[in-house]
Amino acid sequence: MQNVSRWYGNVVAVNDITMRLEPGVTGLLGPNGAGKTTVLHMMAGFLNPSKGTVTLDDKPTWRNPEVYRHLGLVNEREAVHGFLTAEEFVVANAKMHKLPDPKAAAARALDLVEMTEAKDRRIGTYSKGMRQRTRVAAALVHNPRVLLLDEPFNGMDPRQRMHMMTLLHSLGERGHTILFSSHILEEVEQVSGTVQVIVAGRLAASGDYREIRRLMTNRPHVFAVQSSDDRRLAVALIAEKSVSGVEIDATGLTVRASDYGSFTRALPRIALGEGIRLRKLLPSDESLESVFSYLLEA
C-alpha cells in the first residue's frame, strides 16, 4: 500500500497509510473502528482507494480479478452457501480457480483445517467455528501466496483457535504472506511478533512489537528484577544514570529505566561490583498490550 487514503464523504476511514507485507505472519491490530477492515478490503480489491495505490506484485488489486490466483481472503462476515456440504463448497471454489484436480485440492484444504470428518454435512448445520474453518479451507484451496483474514478467530473454541494459530504459523514459515486483523491482543501476540497497528485510520506503528517498544524512548522501560539482596541492589541501582525509579516489594524489584541498552549493560556490572547474585531479569512492559496502550495514548 502506497500513501493510501480512503474516505466516505467527509469521514476519513484510512489516512495516508504506506505498508509493505513480507512473507510470514503479520497481525493487523487496532481498536474497533480503526480502519482494519477497510485496509483489508482495499488489499483484497474490494474497495477502491480514494488516494494512493494498492498492489500485489506491482499489479493493482482493484478491478483486477487476476490477483486472486495468488490471494485468498477470509472476510469477517460469516456468509457461506449453507445449502452445500463443506466438500461441495470447497470443490466448487477449486473449480472456479480452474485447478487441475479440484477434488484432491479440496481434500487437502479440508484436511488442513481438520474438517475432513464433517465434510459431507450441509454447512448450514455447522457451528460458527466449523463454518469459519470451511471458509479458511476455501480460501486456501489454491494454495495462495498471500492470505488475508479478517478477525479469523471469531467464534472458535480454544482448541480450534489453537489449531488455527498453528496453521497460520506453519503457513508463514513456509513462505506465505499472512495478514490477519484482530482487536484481541492475546491472539496477535500468540500468532505473530510482527504487527501493523492502526489507530483512527492512521498507521501508528509497524514492525516487531518488541522492537517498537524499545524505540519508545520517551517512556521508561519497566523490568522485574530478583536478586540475592534486593534492598542493597536497589540502593546501588538508584545511583545509576539510566535508572529513573526503583520499587521494592515482596516479589523483588520493579526498575524503571530511561534507556534500555544502558540499563541492561549497567545491571550486571553493578551486581558484580556489589557481590549480588541476579536471579531474574524480565522486561515487564514488552507485552503487546503495553505497546498497544502506549500507542493509543500517544
Binding site: P65, R77, N93, R135
Partner: peptide, 13 residues
C-alpha cells in the same frame, strides 16, 4: 448475505 464474495475472489472475468 455476503456469499457473493466467494465467487468474486476467483480469477474469473
Amino acid at each position: 448475505d455476503g456469499t457473493l464474495v466467494h465467487i468474486l475472489t476467483k480469477p474469473m472475468p
